[in-house]
Design a protein around this nucleic acid. Structure first.
Lengths: 336, 336
DNA sequence: TTAATTTACGCAATCGTTGCCAAAAACAAT
DNA sequence: ATTGTTTTTGGCAACGATTGCGTAAATTAA
């Protein structure tokens, strides 16, 4: 089996005690230069690596953080993960990524699993189905550091990193209006998610400020966040079957945008002269369409980095932190 | 700080010894029914969770497996990861995902890190830059279970799960030929990767069997697997600057296909009447193009599942396994 | 030469859990 | 009542690494 050498092995081989070896490896002042050199060279020779489990047990921390996202196959999240990784790894932390696939049950299971794996902290973007955050509240109250990003709950008081969803939605909708559209529909994820609420408000703001009245039947929510293609298909078809059919759709998410395009393609309507689309997306494939599709880009990488910095701040804090802030990063509209 | 209750806490609270509590929780036959009930109820009440670090230290295994892939933002890998997760989680294993971003250095660092994190086994698809696998060989010889998938090394004797790359490439190239193309170029990842070699052979086979001679200048390799867009751009431009310009390109990878399309779009040549494209890709966005793009789909999810099953077989084997096989799964051509 | 100080190292406890052996309690057989 | 058996429980050690404390040996000072 796969065994690596331990401090004990080194001590035995060199005729020293484990404490001497340990201290020599940590370059302690109370070990003579000769012994240090001896130990260090032998350790390098046998490729000694400290056992992380032993360390975690002793230090009562695992030097690992848990991530909970909907899916890695989502440009926003994969970019955020790259940001998270870049900070976490450089600070010596391992990252454990879990996916909810937008399911509340899987979110609870994943969180429970990460907690029992004794991660030092949690970075989480809520699943589309999540309306109740008591599973997280409980852990948070017991002292587990948590930072939310992207989809954040109101009830839990901790650091939150979000994009300026309202502004992004406002700009995207405004772009559709300026392109001559007046009948603009809106497809979004679950109504209760923070991002949905904020994006909806940006959308209605843009319409209001331009003297366009809000049509409730133009607003569709997909409570599984587009994980179920049928849901998206139904939403799009309902919009297209309206007496007063919309001439544009503002779609509020990466996966939803793709899902929506698939439906339109299937209906042979993927054509901006028939119906224009603008949406939140961090994917650069949108460039490739002809005509291309305008989209709101979120600074996912930066959000991941910032969230991780905040989390490590909490984890490594000497005293319990009680003052938290919510950071809002700017989105960028790619007009295509 | 975040503390959960331990066996010791329970023992103290109930006036029992830790060993009794431990055995009561494991429902050992040698503990009386009354004590068991007492302990179990109290444990549930205080939400007792065994400390995984203590267990890992004792059992000398971590119940976790490491994954090394180029990028999660790649449809092939994200699907494979879903397959890996599905098996690993159901068998009680945690998965640690790391990305190489096609860099050899990062691959070495990640592997080293996973090994020192004492994962029970490794699932790996080599980076585009990786030509030397001694870092893996060493670990493998020391007994760490490793299963390769997708991009596999020849030198290391263990389970390998791959797609039928030659056949996939053959079919895609054949499709281009049947669509009337004769001047078919090929853009691939690093020349030394197993997938590149196999896909190249499928490509040349298809040409040979149809009486088309191989033009060496039609074959381009991107040694960073498309991570550097310049590299792709150069390759495409060189093809387009040839006296005898190709009228089709067979692209051998997800990221390369997208990269290639971006270049063509930039050159205003993303149009199959100017130059046709067929490629390996697990992305369904290819559906959305007009005209759509034919692609070779790999059973990524199944490959991930199978690789994980093999790895767990190695990890949980009573005796060292010495007989290994390479499994080849069929690809599927989506003619669009 | 002796006392004081410094240097260099070892012992043992700790983290949470389990395996093994001994001890105590409960019960049965004489 | 005494011995033997079985059932139930407790104590100790171990996994790997760290660390406070103690101490022998070496060095310096008096």
């Amino acid at each position: 089996m796969f065994e690596s050498s331990t401090i004990k092995d080194i001590a035995r081989a060199l005729g020293l005690s484990t404490s001497t070896v340990s201290r020599a490896l940590r370059d302690s002042y109370e070990i003579s230069a000769g012994t240090k050199k001896l130990v260090m060279e032998y350790a390098k020779q046998v490729n000694y690596r400290p056992n992380p489990n032993a360390l975690s047990l002793k230090e009562r921390r695992s030097k690992s953080i848990g991530i909970v996202v909907s899916e890695v196959a989502n440009h926003y999240f994969s970019q955020a993960i790259n940001g998270i990784e870049s900070i976490a790894n450089s600070r010596g932390y391992t990252v454990i990524i879990t996916q909810t696939h937008e399911s509340f049950e899987r979110e609870k299971t994943n969180v429970q699993h990460l907690a029992s794996r004794s991660v030092d902290g949690l970075l989480i973007s809520l699943s589309a189905e999540t309306n109740d955050v008591s599973h997280l509240e409980q852990l948070h109250q017991r002292g587990l550091p948590i930072v939310f990003f992207d989809r954040v709950p109101e009830r839990i008081n901790t650091y939150k990193i979000i994009a300026d969803n309202a502004m992004g939605a406002f700009e995207a909708t405004l772009h559709l209006i300026r392109s001559g559209h007046k009948k603009i529909a809106h497809i979004s994820s679950s109504a209760h998610l923070s991002i949905s609420i904020e994006r909806l408000s940006g959308y209605t703001d843009a319409l209001n400020k331009n003297g366009i009245s809000i049509q409730p039947e133009y607003i569709k929510n997909c409570s599984h966040g587009g994980m179920i293609q049928d849901e998206v298909e139904t939403a799009v078809k309902e919009l297209l079957n309206l007496k007063d059919k919309p001439d544009a759709i503002f779609v509020a998410g990466d996966r939803l945008t793709m899902g929506c395009m698939h439906v339109l393609k299937k209906l042979n309507m993927l054509n901006p002269t028939l119906i224009a689309i603008a949406g939140f997306s961090n994917s650069d494939v949108l460039d490739l369409f002809n005509p291309p599709i305008t989209s709101v880009f979120q600074p996912a990488f930066d959000m991941g980095q910032l969230a991780t910095e905040k989390l490590l701040e909490l984890i490594e804090a000497k005293f319990p932190v009680t003052e938290f802030e919510q950071t809002i990063l700017n989105t960028k509209l790619f007009i295509r």
